[in-house]
Design a protein around this nucleic acid. Structure first.
Lengths: 109, 109
DNA sequence: AATTTGCGTAAGTAAATACTTACTTATAAA
DNA sequence: TTTATAAGTAAGTATTTACTTACGCAAATT
């Protein structure tokens, strides 16, 4: 069972959870109120988010407050930023590079 | 069946494919040679990547060259960058913000 | 002390995912 | 024109995913 950040943010519900608790730490029931699905379903999503390090839980009495560990998102943005030179107005340069490397290609009719 | 960029990059094989064709367009067999799995498996991954717009295919005779559409990755980086202020040396500010919004919390013993 | 609240977990399920092998089609080479 | 190559597709399968309901337990309230 994979449990990494890429997998965690693939699910739209989990991205919504992150949006929800990005600016204020909420307990589990407060999160669940914002969704149509059952509380245990949200609990399971939170489990996935904590297991990959994207969310941390602070116990306060019987409540558990969830907050986002934004540093973890860095793993994703760093993977993407490898390629960032290709979309910062340098798409033409990429086209040139690619076509220069396809020397055996027939010209279009 | 969801078919978005977040889902597409969740699979490690598909991220490897993107890495592989990031700097040079390759045809399907050339891509498949780099993996242990069968060619049809790679073909199916490419299908997912094209259906979400992350890869485009250029037909050349009987070959199909795959190249990355980097612009699509922007969707992911933009989602993450909403929160970027929280990890650019501003983590302390976040801690302050969060604790300021938990007024009913008991002090630690 | 009894009840309510917050939340985790177990078990079950339908659908999705990530493969496989077998087959087909289109193009190119012999 | 026969054969080889590139690659899409179909069908089958094991595993994973995203839920559900039912239940249990610890902390708080009555």
């Amino acid at each position: 069972m994979r449990r990494d950040v890429f997998q965690a943010i693939a699910d739209p519900t989990r991205r919504e959870i992150i949006n929800l608790i990005a600016f204020q730490s909420l307990n589990l029931n407060a999160i669940a109120e914002n969704f149509e699905m059952s509380r245990p379903a949200i609990s399971q999503h939170i489990k996935i988010l904590t297991e990959c390090g994207l969310v941390s839980i602070k116990k306060e009495g019987r409540e558990r407050f969830c907050e986002v560990k934004f540093q973890k998102l860095k793993e994703v943005s760093q993977w993407i930023e490898q390629y960032s030179s290709f979309w910062n107005n340098k798409l033409d340069a990429l086209e040139i590079y690619l076509s220069a490397n396809k020397t055996k290609v027939e010209p279009k009719k």
